[in-house]
Amino acid sequence: MRLLTHNMLSSNIKGVANGFPLKIEVVTVVEKEVEFNIEFLKKMFSKVEWKALAEASRTMGYTELPENADASMLDSDDFLHKFHHALLELHLEEGALVCPETGRKFPVNKGVPNMLLHEDEV
């Protein structure tokens, strides 16, 4: 699972008010190279929650993203490459996503998070 996907997922347990962002527990991270697409990155910049992305990438062992970012940084090629790497090339392969409110863990196996709820959580 890439961090782009992580950025749109929220804890779905009944009664949880602030389910975003899900915390990440890492067992294995893999990196897969993706073609660099500036237009796509510029479009996505306005849609992602930056803090969630920066923190998630740090948890995954990538420390190059700044704490805060604004649109003026999109002029920097260096910034765009780092954003690209964090957003699209880091994959959580094994680990878990953790609901920030309840601590409930959603396991991630072979890159696939299991977000199925138990009966009493729906």
Partner: peptide, 28 residues
Amino acid sequence: YENADELELDMDFIQCDINSLNWRGQIV
């Protein structure tokens, strides 16, 4: 997953009940 591998495409998967998934933002 195997099909994606066969075509050499990166596809993210989520196991979930569509009806009870919580989405944030307008990324899709």
